[in-house]
Amino acid sequence: MNVRSLVARDVKAAAPFGRLAAGLRAFRPADLLLPLALPAAVLLAWQVTAVNGWLPVQILPPPAMVLSTLHDLIRDGDIAANLKISLWRISLGFALGAGSGLVLGTLLGVSKTLDDYLGPVFKALAQIPSLGWVPVLILIFGLAEALKIVIIAKACLVPTVLATAQGIRNIPRHYLEVARVLRLSGRTRLFKLLIPATLPTVFSGLRLALSHAWIALIVVEMLAAQEGVGYMMVWGRTLFQIDIVIAGMLVIGVIGLAMDTGLARIARRLRGWAPDHG
């Protein structure tokens, strides 16, 4: 729960024309400018370093050079072509990993027996970093696309399962008791209680999963790929053109932020749709 939604809730309680006012107040210019303060400071330090030649240009090219490289990469379609492949890998891996993670997490959260059987094994496997799986998975899947998708899916699976199971287990006991007393149907229980109550936790799990997906993507593309944003960065390093590497970092940062913001928006929408359960 972020500051903005807290403010929004207070305002909603206080003022009759709640939403509009909350919306207006939430978009103060300061909200937009504050997050830019640190990047601006970094950019300034970077420019100063470059101008003074404190680092060799081969290690840290000046911002203007990175910008012009980024411009070239966009103009020549390199970014678009690589991004298309990377986003496809992310989407597929995320869909598979998060999808099966929701199912498995629900099962583990609902069934104590299943959790007793699978919980410890799952947690042990989850501790192995994605990179640790690579040698084994290469033997099974070869170097083809399947390898990349599986590694990304695995990276998404773990946080989704943990968050979903946690979300379900954290539903206050008395809610469940009330539901039992009221003899709510399974359907009603699912839509009016389980989903709304677990949504915030599940979505923070999904957001974590998405960031893990990006990490896994870059790892697999650096390891065994011929295209994609991660490979573009490896290639930039091989060619000793660090500006390409930094351009790739910027692209990933912006896209990643956009996706995370998108997920946060969806979460907020869904929370609005679900009845407030305090």
Partner: peptide
């Protein structure tokens, strides 16, 4: 080679 270039740039 690529690593040697980086090390050289690093001084």
């Amino acid at each position: 080679g690529p690593a040697i270039n980086e090390a050289t740039a690093n001084g």
